[in-house]
Write a protein that binds this DNA or RNA. Structure first.
Length: 595
DNA sequence: CGACTTTGACCGGCGC
DNA sequence: GCGCCGGTCAAAGTCG
């Protein structure tokens, strides 16, 4: 709460500063003109003074001085003329600039009023966010098409406000309103529980459960639509991914459309942990294991569990914080595989150096329930973009367009070879532009590198430039000045809670791992927490799971677990694939209800 | 014996 | 209202 007010004040200051800065720049030409005019009047006055002074001297001296005065006057006149010419030039320049500025403003206003209006309406109606922070948003559909407009629109209307002051424009609506009632950082604290609550509540049998269990009620009567799920698709030969957590199977069901049974697991690390997961083989590719996580751990996790927990939390946070959903026009078939390419959504570019992984957040593969916003991480290599080191990260709330209308689209992509992002299960995030330091990976603020690190020699394309490239269509990236790039990137970051969430998770993971070689995540360090909070908005709320040690996912094993020394590592210990039985961790209370 | 899995039954939501 | 379906429960079985 205190923290919230602090940050609010900070935001206000930032905004004021920005406004004043911009204002000053606008008026600067006028000031220059005034100065010039003043300087022009000065010579005339001096001439008069000279004349008066001459009258007091002798004739010879007068003559001499008159001649001198004439000479001086001539010089002054010449200078005056030069000044006048300069003034004219300045005025012309100023007018030209003014005209250009006005024309630009008008143009953008028109753009905003035309397409963006629809966009805004759609966004408000659908409560969704559409961002594209990459280079190429494939104009698949209207949603995609509007992505860049949205950014431009925001940028234009908001007047290029800079800084990391938080803006919650993306979470403008309904589902979000409940979620993020006020933009104060307090939300960062509140969001966790909310997210948890969202995750905790499993729809079908809540009431059911409540009745049977009587007392223990983890039922939250919140908006059912807010239950976020994170679906992870990964190639795995084992029955289940070893994500570091301990799970207990409590059910199995053969779902329609998939011969493979779906298994239901419950986290048994803590008796009251609401986290559950569903595991199912992909019908089309049996080697692909689809794991859907729901809920947030309310207990410390084993170190090996942090990765997955953070990832899923981040993804869930992205969904929830942005009320983001993206809906592709792809077939309603529960088959995700077909939709991956169709999904616009967050697109994280990444490069592993040796191999690239793709992360698609797509339709809920497992989730049959349309009431769950689902975000899917596709860790399977995608043939569609296998040639490019891309990672796609798309969110999807559900198939049901009514509940979760098409909307959110984030694309942090860059076709450049070296980039940041989700890579082999690790989130590598590089914000080098600020430092321009290739080795800035050490700097947590500047670079987020979760997990396996690229070689330091590898130039990593900064995400800001990526944003910039995406945001400013007309202007080639190379022409962007650094300040512009930073400004645009900042804008994007501050404007999109989803991205903030991703950042949050990434940072939290880093923080956790940073200190956590000793187990306790630095996120628990109040001071650091505040720092992060200042930098990031509510959506940055660290999932509870991020505070704890965590999980690794077996899919990470696919990536060579050879972290680069000196870099921020997210998950160092290689995680063996294993059955749930072999899952590590204290048994805790495994029979939460039976006993 | 405790922890875990299996599996049929039950419940609620949703669509027709 | 009915049936389908997803999700969960809990008794029975298995394993170490």
């Amino acid at each position: 709460m205190e923290f919230g007010s602090e940050r609010s004040a900070h935001e206000v200051k930032e905004e004021k500063r920005t406004e004043s800065t911009l204002g000053g720049q606008e008026h600067r030409p006028e000031q220059e003109i005034v100065m010039q005019e003043t300087s022009l009047t000065t010579p005339e006055r001096s001439t008069v003074e000279v004349g008066a002074h001459v009258s007091c001297l002798s004739k010879k001296e007068e003559v001499d001085e008159l001649q001198n005065a004439k000479t001086e006057m001539g010089e002054v006149i010449e200078e005056n003329q030069r000044l006048k010419i300069r003034l004219n030039r300045i005025l012309n320049d100023y007018r030209t600039l003014q005209m250009q500025f006005h024309s630009i403003v008008e143009q953008e206003t028109k753009d905003c009023s035309d397409k963006p209006k629809n966009d805004q309406e759609m966004r408000e109606e659908s409560e969704l966010v559409s961002l594209s922070l990459g280079r190429i948003p494939v104009p698949r559909n209207n949603e995609k098409g509007k992505v860049p407009k949205t950014l431009e629109e925001e940028e234009d209307e908001e007047g290029l406000s800079l800084g990391l002051e938080c803006k919650y424009e993306t979470s403008k609506s309904g589902s979000t309103t409940e979620h993020v009632p006020n933009p104060s950082p307090t939300n960062s604290v509140e969001e966790v529980p909310k997210e948890e609550a969202a995750g905790e509540s499993w729809p079908a049998s809540k009431g059911h459960k409540t009745n049977r269990d009587g007392g223990e009620v983890e039922v939250s009567e919140q908006n059912p639509a807010k239950k976020a799920r994170v679906c992870v698709r990964a190639r795995c030969d084992t029955p289940t991914l070893n994500d570091g957590c301990q799970w207990r199977k409590y059910g199995q069901k053969i779902s329609k459309g998939n011969p493979c049974p779906r298994a239901y697991y419950r986290c048994t690390v803590a008796p009251s942990c609401p986290v559950r997961k569903q595991v199912q083989r992909c019908a089309q590719d049996m080697t692909i294991l689809i794991t859907t996580y729901e809920g947030t751990h309310n207990h410390p996790l084993p170190l090996s569990a942090t990765a997955m927990a953070s990832t899923t939390s981040a993804a869930a946070s992205m969904l929830l914080s942005g009320s983001s959903t993206s809906h592709s026009g792809s077939s309603p078939s529960p088959n995700i595989t077909t939709t991956a390419a169709d999904l616009h959504g967050i697109k994280f570019s990444l490069s592993d150096g040796s191999q690239s992984k793709q992360y698609y957040l797509s339709h809920p593969a497992l989730s049959s329930s349309n009431s769950h916003p689902t975000i899917t991480l596709d860790l399977t290599s995608n043939p569609l973009s296998s040639s490019a080191p891309f990672a796609k990260f798309t969110s999807n709330s559900s198939y049901n367009p009514q509940r979760y209308p098409p909307s959110t689209s984030l694309s942090f992509s860059s076709s450049e070879s070296n980039t940041s992002s989700w890579s082999n299960g690790f989130f590598t995030y590089n914000t080098q532009p600020y430092t321009n330091n290739r080795n800035a990976n050490v700097n947590v603020l500047g670079n987020i590198n979760l997990g396996r690190q690229q070689t330091e020699q590898q130039p990593m394309e900064n995400i800001y430039s990526s944003f910039m490239q995406r945001n400013s269509n007309p202007i080639p990236p190379a022409q962007h000045s650094l300040p512009d790039t930073i400004a645009a990137a900042t804008k994007v970051i501050t404007a999109d809670p989803n991205f903030q969430s991703a950042l949050a998770a990434a940072l939290s993971s880093i923080i956790g791992s940073g200190s956590s070689q000793g187990n306790q995540g630095a996120a628990e360090n109040p001071s650091q927490k505040i720092k992060w909070g200042e930098l990031f908005p509510p959506s940055f709320a660290l999932p509870s799971s991020s505070k704890v040690n965590g999980c690794a996912s077996s899919f990470l094993n696919k990536a060579p677990a050879n972290p680069q020394p000196g870099s921020l590592m997210f998950l160092q210990p290689p995680l063996p694939l294993s059955s749930p039985k072999s899952a590590s961790g204290s048994p805790g209370d495994h029979r939460e209800k039976k006993n």
